[in-house]
Amino acid sequence: MRAAVYHGPRDVRVEDVPEPELEAATDAVVRVTHTAVCGSDLWFYRGDSDRDVPSTVGHEPMGIVEAVGDDVRSVAPGDRVFAPFKISCGACEFCRKGLHTSCVNGEGWGGDNGGAQGEKIRCPHADGTLVRVPDRYADDEDALRSLLPLTDVMGTGHHAAVSAGVGAGDTCVVIGDGAVGLCGVAAARRLGAERIVAVGHHDDRLDLAESFGATDTVAERGDAAGERIRELTHGGTNHVLECVGASSSMELATEVCRPGGTIGYVGVPHGLDGGLDLFDFFPNNLTLRGGMAPVRAYAEELMADILQGTLDPAPVFTKTVDLENVAEGYRAMDEREAVKVLVEV
Rank of each mutant, 00 (worst) to 15 (best):
Arg122Ile: 04
Arg46Asn: 13
Asn238Asp: 15
Val268Gln: 03
Val321Asp: 06
His100Ala: 12
Gly222Pro: 09
Val295Ile: 07
Gly290Thr: 01
Leu99Gly: 04
Asp79Pro: 12
Ser247Phe: 08
Thr215Lys: 02
Gln308Pro: 00
Arg331Lys: 12
Leu272Val: 04
Glu335Asn: 12
Asp142Glu: 15
Val343Asp: 05
Thr310Lys: 05
Thr33Trp: 05
Ala314Ser: 15
Thr215Gln: 01
Glu300Tyr: 09
Glu242Ser: 08
Ala299Asp: 02
Val341Cys: 03
Ala187Gly: 11
Met1Gln: 12
Ala209Leu: 05
Asp27Met: 06
Val81Arg: 05
Ser49Lys: 13
Ala83Gly: 10
Leu276Val: 14
Ala224Met: 06
Leu241Cys: 11
Thr320Glu: 15
Asp50Met: 07
Asn105Thr: 03
Arg132His: 01
Val68Glu: 05
Phe94Gln: 14
Leu311Asn: 06
Trp109Asn: 05
Asp312Gln: 07
Val12Ser: 05
Ala160Thr: 03
Leu302Gly: 06
Asp27His: 11
Thr26Leu: 01
Glu227His: 08
Ala198Arg: 06
Pro269Glu: 05
Ile64Val: 14
Thr318Cys: 04
Val37Gly: 02
Glu220Ala: 15
Leu288His: 01
Glu242Asp: 07
Gly274Leu: 07
Ala143Asn: 09
Pro20Asn: 06
Ile229Cys: 13
Glu251Gly: 02
